[in-house]
Design a protein around this nucleic acid. Sequence first.
DNA 1: TTTCAAAATGTAACCGGTTACATTATAGAA
DNA 2: TTCTATAATGTAACCGGTTACATTTTGAAA
Lengths: 360, 360
Amino acid sequence: MTSIRDVSKVAGVSVATVSRAMSRPEKVSDKTRKKVLEAIKATNYRPDVLARNFTTRKSRTIVVLVPDISNPFFSRVIRGIEHAAQRVGYSVLLGDTRGDPAVEDTYASMVEARLADGIIQLNGRLPFGDTSGGEDTGRGDDAGGDAAGSSDTFGRSAESTKKSVPLVNACDCVHGSNVPTIELDNASAAKAMTQHLLSLGHQHIAVVQGPVGSSLTKERLRGHTEALQEAGLTLDSTLIAEGDFSAASGEAAVTTLLAAPSMPTAIFCFNDEMAMGAMHSLKKSGYAVPGDISVVGFDDIQFARYCDPPLTTIRQPAEGFGTRAMEVLLGMLEGKEPEVLNQYLPHEIIIRQSSGPVKK
Amino acid sequence: MTSIRDVSKVAGVSVATVSRAMSRPEKVSDKTRKKVLEAIKATNYRPDVLARNFTTRKSRTIVVLVPDISNPFFSRVIRGIEHAAQRVGYSVLLGDTRGDPAVEDTYASMVEARLADGIIQLNGRLPFGDTSGGEDTGRGDDAGGDAAGSSDTFGRSAESTKKSVPLVNACDCVHGSNVPTIELDNASAAKAMTQHLLSLGHQHIAVVQGPVGSSLTKERLRGHTEALQEAGLTLDSTLIAEGDFSAASGEAAVTTLLAAPSMPTAIFCFNDEMAMGAMHSLKKSGYAVPGDISVVGFDDIQFARYCDPPLTTIRQPAEGFGTRAMEVLLGMLEGKEPEVLNQYLPHEIIIRQSSGPVKK
DNA sequence: TTTCAAAATGTAACCGGTTACATTATAGAA
DNA sequence: TTCTATAATGTAACCGGTTACATTTTGAAA
């Protein structure tokens, strides 16, 4: 393994010059730079990233916390993150939490142990500890004015407690903290979908929501309720079923809903997988979709248009969430406060054939 | 940030003892260990992973190279890898290559730069032979003077020893090298499926294969042909269409196949997404599935059973591939040669409703 | 009590970069 | 030419672990 010292020997310069030639080429003269570059080539030198990470105290790695990678929506978000990271030379560590807070903590502690510089969390749980933000790792790259007290006399006085880890929340976000969020205006999107169903004449619209704890669920339900109210209707709580975003839970929810006092003529599922499960279950019970009952979803996953009938749903810019989240996190890592704390990306209602006029 | 020296001071022992108390507790006396543990707690000490990785020359990280994370089959494999890694304290770096060999090389060079200890590759390309690289490490800003890189395929790498990076190949594997592989017996699986179709009376079975370069495609086609031959039939090359594992390509393939001289009565797609695309296309053209034409897939992704009709397919142990691949790689990292170079995991034919007797 | 191998612990070098600070080279001004 | 500001380069400390080797302690046998 050739080291920077080998290169410096071959090039006939000091290690500092080699280092500078690589990281800040404008600080070395042309001829020196050329010599160094040649020496690098001659020795087949590759900088040791582990050593560099160690000295710079940065890993140029971020972790993505996701409850389930095999969810097609999340995997697209991850792809967006990954590509954005690749472009700027960052790598992404994958953390499949299976919803387990212990696993989340494990990954959060990786940041504390400096294995990663920041976290993008795809479903908002409790923020890790403090999150007070501000204050980044001293030792910036600003060449200027490093006062006399060179040695780090940092105030390690009190228990510094939870270092605030750079954190961005995407897709399903918690609010009220100062953690930046990137998400859909879930209420508006859901409202628009419900309005679509209302416009088709549906009055008894069932909902298969997500886990009740999630803010995403709350927001979507809020939008739905709002649309109902504006149409002079009220929310019928017997038409609300809870799902967990899996197709199986959509399937199960339908049996509950069909037993409700007032028969629904449409079912609004809070993601496409549950919608697919619901359609499957309906058809198995002999109901035509959308002839007897309309079904609509949320996300517009790749498979939505291959359903039978193709699924009416709400398209989310999945990759966009990822790239945007990465941009914001990158900014934070450079010490910038995000100019907008809560960002909303646009949705689009995709009307296909699973929704139709109410059956008379 | 508290360091190991802080802990040693508080505990009244040397740094070596602290280090040993953590990594090899049996080498330290009970009372000392207790003192150290208390000091660790008192100082709120967390070992600096970057420093540890640097000194031990290991990152306890592996990279997973996948052509497309949003493929539901791959994402399950990844989940398997990730969970297996979590159990042994490894992290996984995600590398979405988009099939781009340049991206693959970038990730391969991470191993050389010691950012990762090994690689699991989910689709077999050429083994990273060349490694000439010399490329930069992917710091975002190579302002100017890129004179060093760019020239690859220069003989020099031969002398620089083909660094063998610990590599495991899973799912779609290249053979003939000494890279361990974990996969299905694709030929047998495909053969079994074709036999299923033959048993339903189908004589004109079309195939929507994957990219022709892949060994997975070749093997499955081989199994298919074998079944045909054993039934006294020969492969009709006009009934072979090429796809790229996307639903859209399955959709497109169907139009080609329907124009073939001999009308197929069944279509065997080499993955479920293409099968879903094919079914979609067939139904749009007015064909009943399986009434007019049977369609079968491969993989048994989560959505296969929610298709209409539910898809007959071949179940692969996706998570199993992941965990097994991780086990093998782990073994290699510990210096063990894998006892079996080419492992085959079992498949299972899942017969649902998309395949039926041939139409008379 | 003495002896000595084994166990426990300490000392300090080392990994390979980065960078503060010191030193030397360069060039324009006086 | 001499002086001085600035650019270019060199020296060496430093990051925070691990571990080879040296030293001390322990405990059982002699």
